[in-house]
Design a protein around this nucleic acid. Sequence first.
DNA 1: AGTGTCGCCTGAATGC
DNA 2: TGCATTCAGGCGACAC
Length: 281
Amino acid sequence: MPELPEVETVCRGLDKAITRKTLARLELRRKGLRFPFPRGLAQRCAQQRITAIRRRAKYILIHLASGDVLIAHLGMSGRMVIVDRDEKHTPEKHDHVIFHLMDGSCVVFNDARRFGVLDIAAEKDLAQSRHFAHLGPEPLDTDFSPAYLTQKLADKKTAIKIAIMDQAVVVGVGNIYAAEALFEAKIDPTRAASTLKPAEIKKLWAAIRHVLEKAIAAGGSSIRDYVQSDGELGYFQHQWAVYDKEGEKCRGCTCPLPKTGGIKRITQGGRSTFYCAARQK
DNA sequence: AGTGTCGCCTGAATGC
DNA sequence: TGCATTCAGGCGACAC
């Protein structure tokens, strides 16, 4: 379930592994993922030097010397795997795209559920592209501020958890970090967004940034060069406070468990929400 | 315009 | 044991 920290960690791993290298060819092993691959995708990548790896929201951006940018999204189940020696790699099930590099290594994009994306656009058109045009600010940038969040949440009737997962409000916050941030801020995820008081908005703003920064740091520190021993990028052990912990104690729990029943699980927008009803108000 | 629901897709977990 | 059903979820499409 890659959210912003996982994607950031994948980007850092890719940066170490392939920036300044040259793509020999892009091997497309099917016609598309969530969307059909654009016409001419492979041709636009062939023999192109990779100048930089960046991230916008949950998208991986692979900048090419031509001025084109490869746009990759991992969706739900997408993984990037670095293989040192191309000839050692036998494509497995769901290895849909392989980036073959001139130095004999390759990067494998595997995505069982095919919710992922691979697209290409000229760098100058990136901000206006269909993937990015509607996106809100990066949560770790200065334009994401308590004042900004206050303005975006005003008059919103939707639940606060749904609101912070809205990419037009702020990008990168998925189901897991939304739950974790609301727990840290001690806010009930079902509250209408517009009912949050200024002090609560400030706490939530800080919590969103804090849980994301902590997770990025964990990804960086737990894995050498962001690459696991099997070459996979970006995933690491997490210690959730509430996510996927239905019925358990929350982090730092002093709640009377027999009475509260522990962490609750409800459904919002068709998605599971985990929270501590005793501590989140 | 804002808000809510659906469906894409497959593997793991669960149910009978 | 094995088959069927449910669930996971990012996010675009669509309905209201």
